[in-house]
Design a protein around this nucleic acid. Sequence first.
DNA 1: TGACTATATAACTCAGTAGTTATAAGTGTA
DNA 2: TACACTTATAACTACTGAGTTATATAGTCA
Lengths: 112, 112
Amino acid sequence: MSVDKIFEALSSAPRRRILAYLSKTDMTAGQIAERFADMMSQPAISKHLSVLENAGLVWREKRGQNVHYGLQEDALTGTLVHFLGEVCPRSRPYRKESKAAAMRKQKKGGET
Amino acid sequence: MSVDKIFEALSSAPRRRILAYLSKTDMTAGQIAERFADMMSQPAISKHLSVLENAGLVWREKRGQNVHYGLQEDALTGTLVHFLGEVCPRSRPYRKESKAAAMRKQKKGGET
DNA sequence: TGACTATATAACTCAGTAGTTATAAGTGTA
DNA sequence: TACACTTATAACTACTGAGTTATATAGTCA
């Protein structure tokens, strides 16, 4: 789950679209391939999925004869936020505020 | 300053290192090339800088015979934060479908 | 102007990536 | 067992990107 692999994985527009397609729920490889059938073949999607999985951005689970894929959201958020912190000094205050807000929220009791 | 260009630019480890090197202050092309001289040539750095500039991640200013480069922090933070929020900017249609699929799944009853 | 410095571009090579079609491997079912 | 279905892999092609060296362009100063 290296930063290199994550940025490499994110550099492809099709892969970012796949991530978006998984943003609300997990899907089988077949469903994903079907959705993008007008853009590329099933093996191409399979390869993209394996890149995403290898980068730690999605999880993979075999259920029967299907393979489900879903977002590994923590990896994505964690890496990008960390990267922002390293490269963008200005992002530090935002992160601080975000953390503070999170604390307040937790203290209040987790509604949402 | 498209998202595609930004992610493309960020996909290169050398370019991310250049961004980090600029995180505290701007530098001339020469200073940057010098810093990375053990890794690659001056023309290579020049090309990386032009990719970064083209993506809107750094600004460029000619001062005398030097060219200064510096972080365009807002672009980086803005884009990545936005990306994180939505998982992908181009994703609206995909996200809608994803959500719809999630609803259908839920309606059916969680068999899993 | 001419020499010197700083940066960008040209022309090229090489490696890696993204896509293709064909096929293999694994699973469920009659 | 045999067949259908789902997903992954093999083998290949074409393109792109990153690096190289050599050279052009632009600015500074004697």
